[in-house]
C-alpha cells in the first residue's frame, strides 16, 4: 500500500487553491475594501459605510432596483414560453429541426447587435411603427423606446425574445433524455395531451426548471446591462436605469469606484439573497424525491 505524508494532498491542492483565491477571493476582498473608501485613482481614505449610506439614500438607485424588480416579471414569461416551445418541438412536427434553429437563433446573436437592430426598429419612426401605420393601426404606433412609460417594457420584450431560445433548448435537451415509456403508459391509460404534459412531462423536468428559474433571476438582476446600455442608455430620463447601469456610471463615468463597489456588494448580496433560498428549495425537493 502506498504511504504518503498527510500533507502531500494539500500540497497538490495548493496551486489551484492559490489561483482560485487570487482570481475570485482577491477581487471580492478588494471590492469590499473599496466600498469603504473614497477611491481616487488606486486608493483613498477610509470612510466607513458612507458610500453605502449615499447609495441607499439615492432616489436613482431606488429607481434602478425597482426596474430590476420589474424585469423579474420576465422570468415566468420566459419559463412558460420556453417550456411550451420545447414541448411543442418534442412532438416533432414536420420541419421541427428548422423551427428549433429559428427559435434558437436570437440567442446566438450578440446582445449589442440585437439591441442596436431592435432599438432602431422600435424608434418612433422605425420600421415597426411604419408597418403599423401602413396597415392603419396608427394608434398602436407608439414611441416604444422614447416614452418613459413604454421603454422598460420594450427592453423587457427584447430580453424575452432573445433569451427564450436558451430555455427552450435546455428543456428540449432534458425532454429528449426522458424515458418515453412513462408518457406512453399514460397515453395507454387514457391521459390526453394536456394531462400528459401537466402530470407526466413537466414533473420530470422539475430539476431543469428550477435551474432555469435561478439562472433567469440572476440574469434579470445582474446581466441586463448590455441590453439597457445599447437600447436606451438608461433613459428616457431614468426610465430604464438598472442596478448595473447605475454601477457602471459610478465606476467608469463618475470616477467614484468606491460608490460603484458599494453597489456591487449590494447587488452581490441581493443576488445571493434571492438565489440561496431557490437552491435550498431545490435541495429540499431533491431530498423529498429521494425519500
Amino acid at each position: 500500500m502506498l504511504r504518503t505524508s498527510r500533507f502531500i494532498p494539500y500540497l497538490y491542492l495548493t496551486p489551484a487553491a492559490l489561483l482560485l483565491a487570487f482570481t475570485f477571493g482577491y477581487p471580492l476582498i478588494a471590492i469590499f475594501d473599496f466600498s469603504t473608501r473614497r477611491i481616487r485613482g488606486a486608493s483613498g481614505p477610509f470612510i466607513g459605510l458612507e458610500n453605502y449610506r449615499q447609495v441607499l439614500n439615492d432616489s436613482v438607485f431606488h429607481q434602478a432596483v425597482a426596474h430590476n424588480a420589474h424585469l423579474l416579471l420576465a422570468v415566468p414569461i420566459l419559463l412558460a414560453s420556453g417550456l411550451l416551445l420545447a414541448i411543442l418541438l418534442y412532438e416533432r412536427p414536420r420541419w421541427w429541426p428548422l423551427y428549433r434553429t429559428i427559435l434558437f437563433l436570437p440567442y446566438m446573436l450578440a446582445v449589442p447587435l440585437v439591441g442596436i437592430v431592435l432599438s432602431n426598429m422600435l424608434q418612433r419612426n422605425g420600421i415597426v411603427n411604419e408597418m403599423l401605420r401602413a396597415i392603419g393601426l396608427n394608434m398602436l404606433a407608439l414611441d416604444w423606446i422614447g416614452s418613459a412609460g413604454l421603454a422598460l417594457w420594450s427592453v423587457m420584450g427584447v430580453i424575452i425574445w432573445r433569451e427564450m431560445g436558451f430555455g427552450m433548448m435546455l428543456f428540449l435537451a432534458r425532454l429528449q433524455s426522458l424515458n418515453e415509456e412513462v408518457t406512453e403508459a399514460a397515453r395507454i391509460d387514457g391521459a390526453n395531451w394536456w394531462q400528459r404534459v401537466l402530470f407526466v412531462t413537466i414533473p420530470q423536468l422539475r430539476g431543469v426548471i428550477e435551474f432555469y428559474v435561478v439562472i433567469s433571476v440572476i440574469t434579470m438582476l445582474a446581466w441586463v446591462f448590455s441590453y439597457v446600455y445599447v437600447m436606451t442608455r438608461g433613459g428616457p430620463g431614468n426610465a430604464t436605469i438598472v442596478i448595473e447601469m447605475y454601477l457602471y456610471n459610478f465606476a467608469f463615468r463618475n470616477a467614484l469606484p468606491g460608490i460603484a463597489s458599494a453597489v456591487a456588494v449590494i447587488l452581490f448580496l441581493l443576488t445571493l439573497g434571492l438565489t440561496i433560498p431557490l437552491f435550498r428549495l431545490r435541495a429540499q425537493a431533491a431530498e423529498e424525491d429521494r425519500a
Binding site: V60, G146, S147, A148, R233, G234, G235, P236, G237, N238, A239, N249, R253, N254, A255
Partner: peptide
C-alpha cells in the same frame, strides 16, 4: 460639467422635458 451632472441632471432633464414629464 461633472459627470454625475451629465448622467443624472443634463441627460435626465432634457429627455424628461421632451417626454413631457418635466
Amino acid at each position: 460639467m461633472p459627470t454625475l451632472f451629465w448622467t443624472d441632471a443634463m441627460f435626465v432633464n432634457s429627455q424628461k422635458i421632451i417626454a413631457g414629464e418635466y
